[in-house]
Design a protein around this nucleic acid. Sequence first.
DNA 1: CTCTTATTGATAATGATTGTCATTAAATCA
DNA 2: TGATTTAATGACAATCATTATCAATAAGAG
Lengths: 156, 156
Amino acid sequence: MAKQAEGKASVSPGTQVTLAIGQRSTKQRAAVATALRDIDDFRSAQEIFEIVKSRGDNVSLTTVYRSLQAMASIGDIDVLLNSEGEALYRRCGQRSGHHHHLVCRKCGFTVEVEGPAVERWTHDVARKQGFTDINHTLDIFGVCSSCARKAKTARV
Amino acid sequence: MAKQAEGKASVSPGTQVTLAIGQRSTKQRAAVATALRDIDDFRSAQEIFEIVKSRGDNVSLTTVYRSLQAMASIGDIDVLLNSEGEALYRRCGQRSGHHHHLVCRKCGFTVEVEGPAVERWTHDVARKQGFTDINHTLDIFGVCSSCARKAKTARV
DNA sequence: CTCTTATTGATAATGATTGTCATTAAATCA
DNA sequence: TGATTTAATGACAATCATTATCAATAAGAG
Ligand SMILES: [Zn+2]
Ligand SMILES: [Zn+2]
Ligand SMILES: [Zn+2]
Ligand SMILES: [Zn+2]
C-alpha cells in the first residue's frame, strides 16, 4: 500500500492541493483547484465543470464531482445547499475555521461571517435538550447591493 | 372565477386544512393533513405517501407532493432540507411563527426553538453588507438522549 | 523500469422532484 | 337540483443532480 503523509503538493503553477493519506496528486484535481481559485462565489459542480473547461483544462464531470467531494471532506472547500437542495462549492478564506455565509441569491457573491454568540446559543439549546454530537447549519441569503441596483435599472 | 375567502374548512373528522384563495377542499389533501397530525418528526414526501397509504387513504404520490408544497407555501407546515438535499416536512406547533429546529439525526425527534438574538444578528449582518430581501436557514442536528442511551446499550 | 492500485472517463443507473394532459369533482350559480 | 367552470387528481413521462460501474490509465513507491 502506498503510504504518504498528509501535506501540500504543488501540482500546477500557483495552485496547492491538500492531499489526504493515500491520495495521489493528479492534473485533474489540480485543474479543479485552480478553477476554484479564480472564482469567489459559491458555484455548483456543473458550473465549476464549465469553468474548468473554459480554462482549457479537460476534466470529466464525474471527476469534477469526485474532486469537489474529496476537497470538501478534507475541509479544503466549503459546501452549502441552496434552496433547491443543490450543492454549491467555494474555496473560502485562509482556514478561518468554522464560519457561515451570507450569499447573494442572484449572483452568488459571498461574504464569510462569524458569530460566536450564535455558536454558543446553538450549542446551549441542544445540550439543554439532552442532545449530543451537535452540529448546525446557518446560511443567510439575500440580494447584494449590486444586484439590487441592476434590478432597479432594468425595470425602467 | 370561483372566489373564496381564506379560512378553515373541516374536511375530515378532526382535521382542519387551511385553504388559500381559490383553492378547493379535497379528501386527498385532507388525508395528507391527517397523516401529518399523526407524526411528530420531519418526514420525506415518499414517507408521508406511505403513511397515508397505510392509514387506508389512497392518494397518488404526485398529489402528496402537491399537497405538501401547497401547505408549505401557505406556511401551514415546515420544510427543511436534510444533508442530502431531500425535503422533509412537518406540521409544527400552533402557528408560533418563524422558528427553527433541533433535530435528532437518528430518529428524527424534533424540538422547535426560537432565538430572537439570532434573528437580530442575521438581519444586522446582512444589512450591514448592503443586502436586502434577507432570509436565512438555521438547523441544529444531534443525537437525542434516547438514541444516545440506546447506542450505549447496544454496544455492550 | 515494474508493480500496485488510486484515479479517471464514458456511460448507465438512481432517485427525488416536476411536467403533461386527459379525467374527475369541488364550488358556484341558474 | 342540474349545468357550468376550472382546481385538483392520477398515471406516466421527463428532468436533473448525483452516484455506481468498470475497464483503461497513470501516480508513486521500490
Ligand atoms: Zn466559507
Ligand atoms: Zn456555526
Ligand atoms: Zn417548525
Ligand atoms: Zn430564524
